[in-house]
């Protein structure tokens, strides 16, 4: 991931008012995580699985602060249960930023399921999402996701395409 794209993500998070990020590291965002850790305005929390991260983000929402869950798109599968209960059951939103593993161009057999399952799961969970392919669109997409989720009190997701994160 280019440093310029990393900076756009962090600028987008700050523009959206994010002060807490939960993450489970992945290889495609590997330059993003240390940059977040270094940022004095963002508290990072490393979690043991993405579902736990989703639940922590839900708790941060209840405090009035803003949090984002950052992960590989496979983390969506690990998050489904807490997302369903918090979002559909209680109206507690989680805003996700995920790397797009398994898109056309993927050359790892183990990542193919990530691409095959991501969009059907987002749709099954009624989570609106935007797949961002241009660096210049990152900041706006993150801001838009927060605007929508804080109007709908429901989850939303931004997916950074393979071209942005490889």
């Amino acid at each position: 991931m280019l440093e310029s794209a990393v900076n756009k993500v962090i600028a987008g998070l700050k523009a959206a008012g994010v002060s807490v990020v939960c993450y489970l590291p992945d290889s495609l965002f590997k330059e993003l995580y240390p940059a977040l850790d270094r940022d004095p305005d963002i508290r990072t929390i490393r979690v043991t699985n993405e579902g736990e991260g989703a639940a922590i983000c839900g708790g941060v929402f209840l405090s009035g602060k803003r949090a984002a869950l950052i992960m590989e798109n496979s983390g969506l599968r690990a998050s489904i249960e807490p997302l369903a209960r918090m979002g559909m059951g209680a109206g507690i939103p989680v805003i996700m930023l995920m790397s797009y593993r398994g898109d056309l161009g993927e050359n790892n057999w183990w990542a193919i399921p990530h691409g095959m399952t991501m969009e059907p799961l987002l749709e099954a969970m009624r989570i609106p999402y935007r797949i961002v392919t241009e660096e210049g669109a990152i900041e706006r997409a993150i801001k838009d996701a927060f605007s929508w989720s804080y109007a709908a009190y429901s989850h939303s997701a931004i997916v950074l395409s393979e071209g942005l994160v490889r």
Binding site: E52, A55, V60, L62, S63, E81, P82, R85, M86
Partner: peptide, 21 residues
């Protein structure tokens, strides 16, 4: 008190709340 029906979410949510406040 937030009454939830979320197996596995309670302590993570409480921790998130504690982080925010």
């Amino acid at each position: 008190s937030l009454f939830q029906q979320q197996l596995g979410c309670v302590t993570p949510e409480a921790f998130g709340l504690a982080v925010g406040l």
